[in-house]
Write a protein that binds this DNA or RNA. Structure first.
Lengths: 147, 147
DNA sequence: CTTTAATGTAACCAATATAGTTACATTAAA
DNA sequence: TTTAATGTAACTATATTGGTTACATTAAAG
């Protein structure tokens, strides 16, 4: 299972974009319903990946790329797998005296890498801009009369 | 990250197929290099999903479907997400007073479901039969002279 | 019938990941 | 100088994973 850091990070970026960067970690935390330190921890990961920039003592979070150029894949890579890069865990230290134990990792590499690639390509097809557009669209529809 | 139960389960099925079902959990554990109880725990999940059948006191594991009809997706679903079914964790209990907090889960559902679907479809393209064929192929190539 | 050996499963344990929480140093604006 | 925000560390609770031991159940072999 992929942790909720990912969707929280999308939440952060949506708020940053909608408010033109004028948001604090306290404000974001109130929307996410968690602790400001949790938000700042995820912000740190987004900063290290070059998606946002912020400064101590200064209100405001600056997107480092156009919102239309930030995809779900960028966010996923920023907050999940910051070092490992692999979606699937392949068991190691198998018995090389056995043919299956000797070859299983290599035999699985191609199909598992391809599965990960397909998932990542799907994430790459959606920008944060379109997620925000969907949020605004849903909000406007609900804000209208219920007739 | 997806746990190694998945690749261990593939390992189990490969050994079952290659040995025509005449394998014990001790034998499999020696190839995987783990404890027999770990193997039996995963076997239990494969049984509950209808992929294999076995019986106390009896050596032998019976595939319940043709090996060519068992895909990596079948195995993945059997040993991962036995109840939840969702690859991504979406944070809940967000602040509905905020537009983003109110709509974020719905806005993410389509792209995340699609990403999961793409990954699963990729897994569905590879059968255990083809994994075993790859193992045999690699084994035969290496077994030959190194010339 | 008895012995043997295998599966099915429960009960722990250690290690790790996740998310929440508190605290505080650093920084810059008012 | 005061205020307030970020950056980060430390600690905790919880859940997951994988390893381990133990044992009841079962069936085959002798």
């Amino acid at each position: 299972m992929i942790s909720s850091r990912f969707t929280v990070a999308v939440h952060i970026l949506a708020l940053v974009h909608i408010n033109n960067g004028n948001v604090t970690s306290d404000y974001i935390a109130a929307s996410v319903n968690t602790n400001p330190a949790v938000i700042r921890r995820i912000m740190s990961m987004l900063s290290k990946s070059g998606l946002i920039a912020s400064h101590p003592g200064v209100i405001g979070i600056n997107l480092q790329k156009p919102i239309s150029a930030i995809t779900l894949l960028d966010v996923y890579r920023a907050v999940e797998l910051p070092e490992t890069k692999e979606l699937f865990t392949v068991h190691q230290n198998t018995n090389v005296q056995c043919m299956v134990g000797k070859e299983i990792q290599q035999a699985l590499e191609t199909p598992l890498t391809e599965a990960q690639r397909q998932m990542e390509q799907a994430l790459a097809h959606t920008s944060i801009e379109s997620v925000v557009a969907d949020i605004l669209h849903r909000h406007n529809n609900e804000a209208g009369s219920p007739s």
